[in-house]
Nucleic acid binder design. Structure first.
Length: 293
DNA sequence: AAGCGAACCTGGCTGC
DNA sequence: TGCAGCCAGGTTCGCT
């Protein structure tokens, strides 16, 4: 489900509810998600205060006062919701008009501020870990994670450098979390369309022979930054009932230009092409074969 | 080394 | 209505 904009949206929602609060009780309702929970998961969290909530790639990182970090990944279908809020501007009547199946509520974090944070994940591709803060960068989960596409250093030159010599198609290279961290199937397709580049183009073709970035590399880096920023501003994309932590839908899905729009007319002015669906590395790719070269 | 397909798991949708 | 088959926003593993 969630790519960088959705995880960032969740981070903002959760931060408002949990930073500064302590875990009074943690209910872990099954032994594993994608991986087993760490030993004594609930006990290690109980009594700890959340000092901050960060995002790295598609991971949420809750910094605890124990010098540990609670690491959370939402997989394909994970989501959080916040209960126990007595906020006048979010009356409960519409709060979760379509409530989640409680059978898939796997973890409940009860907080000292009276709120509870519930993790729901039907497919259980998500997972949680507790890692010592000073070991985070060397941990196998993070050791090989690529650059942040919203980071200050991300530009066409860095992109061309990362992709230099690669024969894999752009679609595959952009999806590789070891190179760039946070893009997924939707935003890869959207960024390539905005940049006018074919998902089948070899990734290495973004660099000139002398190693300097081509205008294509600059266009793609700009498109990536732009689509991610717009999506974060829109609260992410809501597919299949995905919601923000406050129950609101994101609305970036209405701005998709190619994703899940096979057969529709290309929206680029004057293009006149049609959106196609192909499969690359086992995943659907949506693009316009007319204006994306 | 790099790239590709399969696997993990459940639910929703399509078509017979 | 029922059921088989396919598809889904991610990641990892094992095989070329």
């Amino acid at each position: 489900m969630p790519e960088l904009p959705e995880v960032e949206t969740v981070r903002r929602g959760l931060a408002a509810a949990m930073v500064g609060a302590r875990f009074t009780r943690v209910d872990q309702r099954r032994p594993d998600l994608r991986f087993p929970f760490p030993k004594n998961f609930a006990a290690r969290l109980k009594g700890r205060r959340v000092e901050g909530l960060r995002r790295r790639a598609k991971y949420l990182l809750a910094d605890l006062d124990s010098a540990d970090v609670l690491v959370m990944h939402l997989g394909m279908s994970g989501s959080f919701r916040i209960e126990g809020e007595t906020d006048a501007k979010t009356p409960g009547a519409f709060h979760h008009a379509r409530s989640k199946d409680p059978a898939h509520d796997h973890v409940a974090f009860h907080l000292s501020n009276g709120k509870s944070i519930i993790y729901n994940d039907p497919r259980r591709f998500g997972f949680m870990q507790i890692i010592a803060r000073d070991k985070l960068g060397k941990h196998p989960l993070f050791r090989n994670v690529g650059v942040e596409p919203l980071g200050a250093e991300f530009d066409g030159a860095q992109l061309a450098r990362l992709f230099a010599g690669r024969t894999a198609p752009l679609k595959t290279a952009l999806s590789d979390q070891r190179l760039i961290a946070g893009l997924g199937n939707i935003y890869v397709c959207e960024a390539l369309h905005r940049a006018g580049l074919s998902p089948r183009r070899p990734a290495g073709s973004l660099a000139r022979k002398n190693g300097t970035p081509s205008p294509r590399a600059e266009r793609l880096a700009r498109a990536i930054r732009e689509v991610l920023e717009e999506a974060v501003a829109a609260g992410g994309s809501s597919l299949r009932d995905y919601r923000q932590t406050n129950g609101d839908l994101g609305y970036f899905q209405h701005k998709f230009r190619v994703y899940d729009r096979a057969g529709e007319a290309c929206t680029r002015p004057g293009c006149g092409g049609r959106v196609k669906r192909i499969v690359q590395s086992g995943r659907a790719t949506f693009f316009c074969g007319t204006c994306q070269r």
